[in-house]
Design a binder for these strands. Structure first.
Length: 841
RNA sequence: GCGGACGUGGCGGAAUGGUAGACGCUGCCGACUUAAAAUCGGCUUCCCUUGCUGGAGUGCGGGUUCGAGUCCCGCCGUCCGCACCA
């Protein structure tokens, strides 16, 4: 028997055995209870990074734990394989995006297998393959047929050099992130999914997700942004009474401040503004200027409020003689509410700033009490209070006044209560090649028509070139030329592709069931769904998780599936971080570029200049602080790397990579191995160790249930320490066996190798999770703390269940207590059985 | 600006209102060894002290309680999300 565990041999051996035995194959027809464990699937960038390793190790531990508990486990893996990096690679390296992507997938699959994850590779999928995206196209057609898809002109960030639409994150200081060209705003006809139809449902559904982090639920709640208010109409002054009864529609959450209005502001994109701009150069000029402003947070923060007085006036709905000027203002958003608002400078910070600048009236209509009606307004007061200077509302609370105005507006017909959402419909058009083709054909006479289902999948053409910017699908000579499926005349294929977030909105359903002729088989998918535990980065807290929830609900509404929420449990894990180094002139440096100089100072090898130790940050190429998992795996083996990922930090927090940490994990692997190699067949019972064993089984199981892997590691270290200190006994042999079972989810190769070496039957991957006896969890001998006035003075050993009065007597008899009391008798004695005695003087 | 989380040794972090610092990392001392590695034993919150005893201690200031890292109030700091959403 070797005295060292050799991962170089053992890792491969067991990975092969598991594969040969099909150990992690998920059987949909198994009679066992089902458990679906899923980690967010990776983008195939080319190499696995430490973040992946941490994410997938957590899921793997849970999956293996569930199997040992007797569940039929679905733990699949796939590839979020469409997206821009493949096209960038195509442009830079002259390789086809598909070639690049598939090579990356092959490399990363190999890396994942090298770490020994318990994955069902038979269900592997890649979103860039027609056998995946073809089904997605079918689902898109379903959504179209149910009225959940529409086409709309919308403004996009357009990069005129790369000839493509950019996401907001890709616009840096007003310039395209790749080309550096100033980004233009351009109106394009784009495809949208009606996620706003589900706003209320998605919001309400959050309440049912009690296994999600509060933080994520709150973020989604804010993102959906429900607000209740009043939508009402202003009539333009001078319009004939019999004309249109609504000229300017506005929305407000503060109807109670209606008597504080001093202007109406409309967005530069508002139809009235556009109409005025059409024949008034001054207006056109202003509109152009107002729209030029950037959308970044910093620009918005510092942007000056700009306004243009149109000269138009509207009539106050509650006073026909009261006229309000209509301004065009740059801070009014066209795509929220109605694109118009009434300004109440006294009670809204933006309106206040605007009114100050353009010398508009500032009129208090809310005060702390009716007596403060004429208190000066020095800054906008947005809070609730008592209505003042508001005619019939005077004296009412904000809530009462709001209700009263809504009631009157509805009764008189000039407005009505309304719920407004911040959530926008989901624009899914991308002017890119490497994505799912939108299955639509544009016909001159029939309009956009869905591709007939028998023609699916609409496959991306392979013969494309990336030597010139823009979407190769647009300039492909034949791909776009098709006949209209409805009238047969010459038509044109849609060349936009779908946002890759669509691909990731249903992959977890396809994992559960993958027939060839359908996106999924309902009955089979429902055996597994919802995902029991989903694990991924918090950066997806909003977009991906919201889109997947929407998609699932849309499928449910269309009668394709009965689950409403795709992910029952969600866990957002922290990042893997590492220290950083910067040169004197601010360049990030690799640790290899640094020498340690005299007195421990850091010196840049190339220049001899000083180096500063930067903050510990998320591993990233730009900060040069990445650690490639591959050489670490080669050096320490899969189990040590897995173990380190579980140790040290609570999983929801960041984990700092350290050499010491991985060394410690590797050391533990060898300690367990040495224990496992100890001779068996010993006699005798060790009661203390027996209790420790049972307590550890309980503690590790509980920690796994709560995904508190760092606590499971600590408990296992304690058990290991206890076994090492114990003398040989039958209990000790049994404890070592238990240790292997408990370690198996985290360090499976070690556990298998030791299991086999000890002559145990079968693979430990198929073993049953140990049970514990609750009666053995409590010690029979307890240590009771003895306090005087809450300060610890001594302890005393006592049998468990010692009566209160006996505990009190024992405590009072202690010499230390006697000397502290100095003859005085205690005023009061608090006894907590088996825990403590507190003597109050 | 709005919303949220967090603050405990040299470091990562444990602690149902009941012995703060489990467990790990680092460091120091010792054993084994020709030596090194590996391994094993011990110490490692701070202050006074030879040691024992003692005192202080969970960001800061108050409060509730026999008892507070934990609960309440007010500050300070760090991090995260959203952001002209009417």
């Amino acid at each position: 028997m070797t005295d060292r565990f050799d991962p170089a041999v053992a890792d491969r051996r067991w990975q092969q055995r598991w594969a040969d035995a099909g150990s992690f194959h998920a059987d949909s027809n198994s009679p066992k209870p089902k458990s679906y464990v899923l980690e967010m699937f990776p983008y195939p960038s080319g190499r696995i990074h430490m973040g992946h390793v941490r994410n997938y190790t957590m899921g793997d531990v849970l999956a293996r734990f569930r199997r040992m508990q007797g569940f039929e486990v679905l733990h699949p893996m796939g590839w979020d394989a469409f997206g821009m990096p493949a096209e960038n690679a195509a442009m830079e390296k002259k390789v086809h995006p598909g070639t690049w992507t598939r090579a990356n997938i092959a490399a990363m699959r190999e890396q994942l297998q090298r770490i020994g994850f318990a994955l069902d590779w038979s269900r592997e999928l890649a979103t860039c393959e027609p056998d995946y995206y073809g089904h997605e196209q079918a689902l898109f057609l379903d959504l179209m047929e149910h009225g959940l898809v529409f086409r709309k002109e919308s403004e996009v960030n357009w990069d005129p050099v790369d000839m493509t639409v950019l996401a907001n994150e890709q616009v840096i200081d007003g310039k395209g992130w790749r080309s550096g060209a100033p980004v233009e705003r351009k109106k394009l006809s784009q495809w949208f999914l009606k996620i706003t139809d589900f706003a209320e449902e998605l919001l309400d559904g959050l309440k049912t997700l009690d296994e999600w982090p509060d933080k994520v639920r709150l973020m989604q709640e804010n993102w959906i942004g429900r607000s209740q208010g009043l939508q009402f109409c202003f009539r333009l002054a001078g319009n004939p009474p019999g004309g249109a009864n609504c000229d300017v529609d506005v929305f407000t959450t503060r109807p109670d401040t209606i008597f504080g209005a001093s202007f109406v502001a409309i967005s530069p994109g508002h139809p009235i503004a556009e109409a005025l701009a059409a024949d008034n150069p001054a207006v056109a000029n202003f509109v152009r200027k107002a729209r030029a402003g950037g959308t970044s947070a910093a620009e918005v923060e510092t942007a000056e409020k700009l306004g243009f007085d149109t000269g138009l006036e509207v009539i106050h709905p509650l006073d026909p003689d009261w006229r309000l000027p209509v301004w065009i203002a740059n801070f009014v958003l066209m795509d929220y509410g109605t694109g118009a608002l009434f300004g109440v400078p006294a009670h809204d910070a933006r309106d206040f700033e605007f009114a100050k600048k353009y010398h508009l009236p500032i009129r208090r209509v809310v005060a702390a009490s009716i007596d403060d009606a004429n208190a000066p307004v020095v800054e906008a007061e947005g809070g609730d209070g008592i209505a003042v200077n508001s005619q019939f509302l005077d004296g009412l609370t904000t809530a009462q006044a709001t209700a009263e105005i809504v009631r009157r507006a509805e009764a008189a017909g000039w407005g009505q209560g309304k719920v407004q959402y911040r959530l926008r419909d989901w624009g899914v058009s991308r002017q890119r090649y490497w994505g799912t083709p939108i299955p639509v054909i544009h016909c001159e006479s029939c309009g956009p028509v869905g591709v007939p289902r028998e023609q699916l999948p609409v496959v991306l053409p392979e013969d494309v070139a990336f030597d010139i910017p823009g979407n190769p699908l647009d300039r492909h000579p034949t791909w776009g030329r098709v006949d209209c499926p409805r009238c047969g005349t010459r038509a044109r294929r849609e060349t936009d592709t779908l946002d890759t977030f669509v691909d990731s909105s249903w992959y977890f359903i396809r994992f559960a069931s993958q027939p060839t002729d359908l996106p999924f088989d309902r009955a089979e998918a429902e055996k597994w769904l919802p995902v029991g535990q989903y694990i991924g980065g918090v950066e997806h807290a909003i977009l991906h998780l919201l889109y997947a929830r929407f998609w699932t609900r849309a499928l449910q509404r269309m009668g394709k599936i009965s689950v409403k929420e795709p992910f029952r449990g969600l866990f957002t894990q922290g990042m893997v971080t590492h220290e950083t180094y910067q040169s004197a002139d601010g360049r990030w440096l690799n640790p290899e570029e640094i020498d340690v100089g005299e007195g421990g100072t850091l010196i840049e090898r190339a220049t001899g200049a000083g180096v500063t130790r930067g903050r510990v940050e998320k591993m990233s190429k730009s900060k040069k602080n990445t650690v490639d998992p591959e050489p670490i795996l080669a050096r320490y083996g899969a189990d040590a790397v897995r173990w380190f990922m579980l140790s040290d930090s609570p999983p929801e927090r960041d984990l700092e990579w350290s050499e010491g940490g991985i060394e410690g994990a590797a050391r533990f692997v060898q300690r367990v191995w040495r224990l496992a190699m100890a001779p068996t067949g010993n006699q005798g019972e060790d009661k203390a160790l027996q209790r420790k064993r049972h307590r550890t089984v309980a503690a590790v199981g509980e920690a796994f249930e709560g995904l508190q892997f760092n606590k499971s590691v600590a408990a296992l270290y304690e058990l290991t320490n206890a076994i090492e200190k114990a003398k040989p006994s039958a209990t000790r042999d049994e404890s070592i066996r238990t240790l292997l079972l408990l370690v198996a989810p985290g360090a499976p190769h070690l556990a298998e190798e030791a299991w086999a070496a000890r002559g145990e039957q079968g693979m430990i991957a198929d073993a049953t999770w140990p049970v514990f006896d609750p009666a053995l969890l409590v010690e029979q001998e307890v240590t009771i703390a003895v306090q005087i006035n809450g300060k610890l003075r001594d302890t005393l050993a006592a049998p468990r269940g010692l009566p209160r009065d006996e505990a009190e007597a024992l405590a009072l008899a202690l010499p230390k207590v006697q000397s502290q009391l100095n003859g005085a008798s205690p005023r009061k004695v608090i006894v907590v059985p088996d825990r403590l005695v507190n003597i109050v003087t």
